[in-house]
């Protein structure tokens, strides 16, 4: 029973991180109908930047903020400089550009910071809470992770549902041409979508880095599971991303705890196939997916 509680708690905190990654992918999909395969490399870069800032200033929070800001900027620049040029090309071209960008960013990180993984500090203690004499697998830092991801998800929901800017972003995503005819600056909305997505990604990077190590390729598994979470939840649905992320976090935590971690990728496959056979466009998607 203790093990079950531990696995559940652990699943919630890793699930929150998957949710943040899935949110990043969903935001970009909604804005520009592109699966951003470079997301893992982008959040790796911003986490390295955070690490450099933390090391030189000694302040975790300064590094945390810089990571989010540099994500914002990186996302906007990538959309403006690269993605805009392939938006009108066949959809697979954007996929290849994103893969190229992934390779490039990983290589650049290796050149600057080397390929040996390094440790990354946590915001709060990672010693589990003491409940009734037993130490559970959930620490103050996990509370922080869960709360931050909830805050970001609520913030995004508020932006999309309650503000004019969010309305314009949704319109630009659903029908760019009609949106332009209504005076929406569609190009800016796309850039903003990428910037916000990259910021959510940067957040996921700093949150997960303490529990893995920080290296050029160390975020790939999280990104793959984040992608599966986004697909399971439905790529058009930010709430779907959060639910998909947490659900997958829980499911994979149980599989890893009871059956061994080697089976985690296979379990992700089974969950994904099962969901897609029942709902071919994910659990919470309202619109039909375009062909890639």
């Amino acid at each position: 029973m203790t093990k079950f509680i531990d696995l559940t708690l652990n699943g919630v905190s890793t699930g929150a991180i998957y949710a943040a990654v899935a949110l990043a992918l969903v935001l970009i999909w909604r804005a520009t109908r592109i699966i951003n395969f470079a997301q893992g490399a982008m959040l790796m870069i911003t986490t390295y930047i955070a690490s450099a800032v933390i090391n030189s200033t000694g302040s975790y929070w300064f590094g945390f903020v810089v990571a989010l800001l540099s994500g914002l900027i990186l996302g906007a620049v990538i959309e403006r400089v690269l993605i805009r040029r392939v938006e009108s090309a066949p959809p697979l071209n954007a996929v290849i550009v994103a893969l190229g960008l992934y390779t490039l960013l990983v290589a650049v990180a290796g050149m600057i910071w080397g390929n040996t993984p390094r440790s990354f500090p946590a915001a709060f203690s990672i010693r589990g809470y003491d409940i009734g004499g037993t130490r559970v697998l959930f620490a103050p830092n996990d509370s922080f992770i869960v709360l931050v991801v909830i805050a970001v998800a609520l913030g995004l929901a508020l932006l999309f549902r309650a503000t004019g800017l969010g309305l314009q972003m949704r319109a630009a995503a659903f029908q760019p041409e009609v949106a332009r005819l209504l005076g929406v600056r569609v190009g800016r909305m796309f850039t903003l979508g990428w910037a916000l997505a990259a910021m959510a990604g940067a957040l996921a990077g700093v949150l997960v880095a303490p529990s893995i190590f920080l290296g050029p390729n160390d975020f790939d598994p999280i990104l793959i599971i984040g992608f599966v979470a986004a697909v399971v939840g439905g790529l058009d649905s930010p709430p779907g991303a959060v639910i998909g992320g947490v659900g997958l976090g829980l499911g994979l935590s149980y599989v890893s705890g009871y059956e061994g971690s080697a089976l985690v990728p296979l379990a992700a496959l089974v969950i994904l196939v099962f969901v897609l056979m029942v709902r071919p466009s994910g659990l919470f998607s309202s619109t039909q997916g375009r062909r890639v």
Partner: peptide, 26 residues
């Protein structure tokens, strides 16, 4: 103001949202 062929309402948004969208820049 251009009302496109095939009407161009954004079906994913509500009626009110469609209307609000038309005037945001103003």
């Amino acid at each position: 103001a251009h009302v496109p062929e095939g009407r161009g309402v954004i079906v994913e948004l509500t009626v009110e949202e469609n209307l609000r969208l038309g005037g945001l820049w103003r």
